Amino acid sequence: MLDSGWDTHDELAVSPPRTGEQAILTRYLPLVKRAASHLRSQVSASFDQEDMEQVGMMGLLEAWRRYGSEPDAQFESYAFKRIRGSMLDELRRLDWRPRQLRQQVHGHNQVQRELFNRLGRNPTEQELAQALDCSVEEVRQLAYASQAEALQSLEEWLESGGKAPTAESDDVDMAMTLSKVLGSLDKREQLLLSLYYQQELNMKEIALVLGLTESRVCQLHKQCVLQLKQRLVDSI
């Protein structure tokens, strides 16, 4: 009998099919919801939670298609970055800060500075609401929007304006610079950034950890981001 050259076991050893996309969407839906909650500070009235999650689902599918293998311990972290990135890209595309909101944020920041100068301390949410003739919840939303402007400015600068990496060594240099600059912040600022970017807590959760109001956490986060950007500029 002629040898066909095929091994029966090899012929039958077919790789199992990858997990279906619907199963991936179901399994990692909590990840999408967590990313949307994490980016709540960049959501305006023109882009609600459901919209954010739909965009995140597309980011999850893109992450799954690019990953090339079954989900493992590293996939969740990889997918979260892709999901968050897709949400940020969509926010930029929509120009999510209409002129009226920009004006309101400017007014909020101006009143906050005036109250600080007059009181000699940071104003409370109630004091800001009274001065702005609005509700405490509206004060919080303006604080989120103000914080988001600073965050987007830093992210855009890191992506293209500050130092565009041209080689792997440039990436290492930037990582070392970031580490050095982060180390120059005070302990509370480092903790806040760690809770937001590493522990992936949202502003409400961070406020509970630090024992502060949400609007105060937004204000501190904005200050940290602006300091971080300026110190990065000075370091390069």
Score class of each variant (00 low, 15 high):
Lys222Arg: 13
Phe75Leu: 07
Gln22Ser: 13
Met203Ala: 07
Gln223Cys: 07
Leu178Phe: 08
Ala143Leu: 01
Ala131Lys: 05
Gln198Pro: 06
Phe47Pro: 06
Leu61His: 05
Gly161Pro: 03
Gln227Pro: 08
Ala207Arg: 02
Ala131Trp: 04
Leu195Ala: 02
Asp186Arg: 12
Gln110Pro: 00
Ser215Asn: 10
Arg93Asp: 05
Glu138His: 11
Asp48Thr: 08
Cys134Ser: 03
Asp133Gly: 02
Leu232Val: 06
Leu29Ile: 02
Ser179Gln: 14
Leu25Val: 05
Arg84Ala: 14
Phe116Gly: 01
Leu2Arg: 15
Leu88Asn: 04
Gln219Gly: 00
Asp72Arg: 05
Pro17Met: 14
Lys33Tyr: 11
Arg92His: 08
Arg113Cys: 02
Val32Ala: 04
Trp64Glu: 04
Arg188Val: 13
Gln103Ala: 10
Gln74Leu: 13
Gln110Asn: 04
Gly162Asn: 04
Glu70Gly: 03
Ser77Asp: 14
His108Asp: 00
Arg97Tyr: 05
Asp133Val: 11
Glu149Gly: 07
Glu125Asp: 14
Leu132Trp: 01
Gln104Thr: 06
Met87Gly: 06
Glu156Asp: 14
Leu210Asn: 04
Thr177Gly: 10
Ser41His: 02
Glu155Tyr: 10
Leu185Gln: 05
Asp133Lys: 08
Thr19Asn: 03
His9Ala: 13
Glu159Thr: 14
Asp95Ser: 09
Pro98Glu: 10
His38Arg: 11
Glu138Cys: 02
Val43His: 13
Ser194Met: 11
Glu138Ile: 06
Glu76Ala: 15
Ser15Met: 13
Ser44Ala: 08
Trp6Asn: 12
Arg18Ser: 11
Gly211Gln: 07
Val225Pro: 01
Lys229Asn: 14
Asp3Met: 12
Gly162Pro: 02
Glu70Lys: 08
Met174Glu: 12
Ile206Ser: 00
Ser194Gln: 11
Leu128Ile: 02
Glu50Phe: 10
Tyr67Val: 08
Arg34Trp: 07
Arg231Trp: 11
Trp6Ile: 15
Glu21Asn: 08
Ala23His: 09
Asn117Gln: 15
Ser235Ala: 15
Ser160Cys: 12
Glu76Met: 12
Leu158Lys: 08
Arg140Ala: 09
Ala35Ile: 09
Met57Tyr: 10
Leu192Pro: 00
Leu142Thr: 00
Val139Met: 01
Gln147Phe: 09
Thr26Arg: 15
Gln126Ser: 12
Val209Trp: 06
Gly162Thr: 10
Ala63Gly: 07
Tyr67His: 10
Ala164Leu: 15
Val225Gly: 01
Ser41Arg: 00
Leu39Tyr: 09
Val233Cys: 06
Ala129Gln: 01
Gly85Trp: 05
Arg231Val: 03
Asp10Cys: 13
Leu228Gln: 06
Ala148Phe: 03
Leu212Met: 15
Arg188Thr: 13
Gln49Lys: 11
Asp48Gln: 10
Leu91Ser: 06
Gln126Met: 12
Gln42His: 03
Ser4His: 11
Thr19Lys: 09
Val233Phe: 11
Pro16Lys: 13
Ser179Ala: 15
